[in-house]
Amino acid sequence: MSKTLLSIGNLKVYYYTNRGVVRAVDNVSLTVSSREMVGLVGESGSGKSTLGYAIVRLLPPQGRIVGGKIVLDGKNLLELSEAEIRKVRGKEVGMVFQDPLTSLDPLQKVGDQLIETILEHLNVSKKEAYKMAAEALMEVGLPPDRLNSYPHQLSGGQRQRVMIALATALKPKLIIADEPTTALDVIVQDRIMDLLVSLKEELKTSIILITHDISLAAERADKIAVMYAGHLYEYAPSDEIVSKPLHPYTQGLIQSIPDVFVRKEIKEIKGNPPDLANPPSGCRFHPRCPYAIEKCAKEEPPIVNVGKERYVKCWLYT
């Protein structure tokens, strides 16, 4: 078995808003092995981004980590000073966001942004940094002359490649990619995903792929973690999530999505996702669950191991 790179234990991330406390990530535990891609899936508002950003402690001012631990390669990231965590970002953990335009500086050439990132973290000469930046661009399939382009001169797919170059330039151990292809067309998405998968192999990094598209995660990730309403409900190898989903929510999700290659009857999950300022008691999925029993409304089920690398949080299996 490969070694654990990241271990998240009982993590709680809450937002303190004027509507009350939003329990966006509540008691989530998850481990990511080295060289593994984990797909973090779930519908809008389920807490995927919050979990992703919490790992590098990049939360908006209302957001607070109120409990748990996040251990990366033996280091509890929650105990680091602000200066120390800043070093982890970029160097040890690279980030790729959905919209590169908001995270790239529009007034700076992409080459300069790359060189700056490299100089900030590594003790190399300017010339050396320039060479590394050109290499990073080539790695992501862009000609090195693109170093002189401004972000707006690039297409959406090219900008996302620049983001990936920025995230991988320092050869981090972990990449967190938050909906990296959601704004892109499928053909471009497919190429960006090819790129992420090949970088994973080459750089021996782990990747957390945050996406609402379970088909994408199933095709690309080694494992899938399913979130719903701030809880992690199922965690298993991708093939098994598709062929034998255990949690009623995962089952519902798989039955509800149309597929281009299979004519199938699709069934909706009844009801709406809850308001996380006022989540349902017990299991947060119970109001929509076809198998709910009395206990589900009263007590939150623990997440339990139900076979090799399979975890599920449901009273049906406990």
Partner: peptide, 19 residues
């Protein structure tokens, strides 16, 4: 090319057309 790029839960063999 479009069809070979769409993610699917139940894809048969993947035969890519790269543009």
């Amino acid at each position: 090319a479009l069809l070979s790029s769409v993610p699917s839960l139940f894809r048969r063999k993947r035969e890519k057309v790269i543009l």
